[in-house]
Design a binder for these strands. Structure first.
Lengths: 359, 359
DNA sequence: GTGAAAGCGCTAACAA
DNA sequence: TTGTTAGCGCTTTCAC
């Protein structure tokens, strides 16, 4: 198949609108209209143009088009680390749904730093992307200056999975409060009393605060005594970070009945710490994570956790972004801004009541 | 900080070269030269321009620049699935090294399908990206038509971690043969006799073939008897795929001393199958994977495996691509096309000899 | 319905 | 060293 026209005898050049216009004895404008399926143009000429374009293997130059329309047809995806499989999955899904709507996706990685995240965003703004989906860093919410700039320039932002203060309307989020409530309630109902909650060092950020609310509410509703000192902040919300924290805590304090963590990633670190401390899971300590991130990998080693509907979150993020990019974009169905959590019980937690009764 | 100039009183408009030129009473061309740090321009005016650009918060429009130069300063990254942490890591690193060189990275996901991979590539070609890094699908190597198109259009391709036939010069790859050789040799030396090798159904593709070579060579060098029937092809190179295959094999055949898999992902599936079959690891069957993909997550549950230097591979991929994009790009250090594997021994394998001697 | 012309913001010849 | 001019490939008025 011929892909480009040979000029002179040297290099390849991509086929342009002009080439089609010349060949069909039409003006570039008409060809452009036809290519873009504007109805103004005569049905017959439109067909001729489209056919010719196909034959010549014409591909519109997105740079030229972007320059003329001020639309890059590209969205940005900023995340802290795609090596985290949950984020990787999100990227995959965001990419899929964006592509379906004709958008490409550019990635930037904040490596968990708010400063870096700001730079990534600024960079995307400079690049004139049409919109940006941000999977924010788990760190305190002083959105960097770039966020203000985005607002000023009218470049739509959508927050995925959490948000910064002031962006409550621009996010798709799971119902963390409910998710952790379900977990905690389940543990309390199954006879656990002392449940540690391991979160990030920044307990005021939404992703952390909302969960802690669920944790506290479950205790309150169940009428079980709880100590604020059971909530611990971890320097880094990673497996390593949680491992080190848990290791220390298990030495310093009395063994809890259960440990909950902010995410599965951390839970695997905690699991290791528990084992090294000589305790068994779930006999001595029950353990539950959040995200259901690695279960396909780990089979029966997988954790009790709360599943997030990643597919739904990704799809709604893209849809929300599109409504902002293109004000007359019509949603087929209403947007779901808060997704439902689902408690997944596996064998890192056990029913302490049954055993007591059994004994 | 003022980010754009207000026209009339309505919308924001981005600052352009023309604005700077007008303000400084210079021509656009001069400003352009100054911005691009061409030495032709007077040192003093250059400084004035740069200062003014900073003050006005000028950001070159990449679309306009791209249109004028035919360079998008963007590279594509095509992979099968970023949810695989090894791929996620690769993406992160490729992104980092690309950004360092001023390139953005656009992602596309082939979802493990050669057809989809071809579409992704074609799409990137249509978008006029400057080059593409491909983390190919583990499937037979009939590069789709898009690969030919890329060659015709002179758009550089670099293959990451494996390659298609005919692209031996365009890839950065780990020394798989050596890696598997080390594994197999180690197992043989520690008293294992029958070692199954679980690879993909496409045993002729490089990523598979090179490893099988290492496996066979180790047997040959050690002078141990081997059966070709110990090599099995798995329909999908995933945890699930390997799980199902191993489950079946362990029912049908006599228990092997050890099982090797193409990657860690598969190994975790096999681990599950082994357990379900009632065998212990490593007492009954030793197990080893490849990639060292999840060890940070799994701690003492991690596998004996072969570590790949992901950082090096990513860096070299970007460097190789840059030499192709920009023929006078100077490599500071020579390119490393084949990276060294490193055997990592953990406790999913054991020394059968010692035990025998001990007994 | 179609075409002419201007313009998106930048770069790159070539003149001055 | 700087300015003039043309052009990258497309879209978008506005006449015809």
């Amino acid at each position: 198949m011929r892909v480009a026209i040979r000029t002179g005898n040297k290099n390849m050049r991509n086929v342009t609108l002009k080439d089609i216009a010349r060949k069909l004895q039409l003006s570039e404008a008409t060809v452009s209209l036809a290519i873009n399926n504007k109805t103004i143009v005569n049905e017959d000429t439109r067909k001729r143009v489209l056919e010719c374009a196909r034959d010549m293997n014409y591909k519109p130059n997105p740079l030229a088009r972007g320059l003329a329309t001020s639309k890059s047809m590209t969205i940005g995806f900023i995340c802290s680390d795609p090596e985290n499989p949950f984020i990787g999955r999100m990227l995959k899904l965001v990419s899929r749904y964006s592509n379906q709507q004709g958008y490409s996706v550019m990635v930037a990685i904040s490596e968990g730093s708010v400063v870096q995240e700001g730079k990534c965003l600024q960079n995307f703004l400079d690049k004139r992307l049409d919109g940006v989906i941000i999977f924010p860093v788990d760190a305190p919410g002083n959105p960097s200056e770039a966020f203000v700039t985005a607002k000023e320039q009218g470049i739509p932002l959508v927050f995925c999975d959490t948000y910064y203060p002031g962006y409550e309307q621009d996010c798709i989020i799971a119902d963390y409060t409910k998710g952790v409530y379900l977990q905690t309630e389940y543990l309390l109902k199954t006879g656990h009393r002392s449940i540690w909650y391991l979160t990030t060092q920044y307990q005021e950020i939404p992703v952390s605060r909302l969960r802690i609310n669920g944790y506290k509410k479950a205790y309150a509703d169940m009428g079980t005594a709880r100590q604020d000192s059971w909530i611990f902040g971890c320097e880094k919300a990673t497996g390593q970070g949680a491992y080190q924290l848990a290791k220390r805590l298990l030495q310093e304090y009395e063994r809890p009945d259960a440990i909950l963590t902010l995410n599965d990633y951390m839970a695997y670190g905690v699991r290791q710490a528990i084992r090294e401390a000589g305790y068994r899971i779930p006999e001595d300590i029950s353990l539950a994570g959040y995200d259901d991130a690695f279960s396909e990998l780990l089979y029966e080693n997988a954790l009790t956790t709360v599943r997030q509907d990643a597919d739904l979150i990704a799809r709604e993020c893209v849809r929300l972004l599109l409504t902002k990019i293109n004000p007359d974009y019509r949603l087929e169905e209403p947007l779901i801004r808060v997704t439902e959590p689902e408690l997944v019980i596996r064998n890192t937690t056990r029913n302490r009541r049954e055993e007591r009764q059994g004994a």
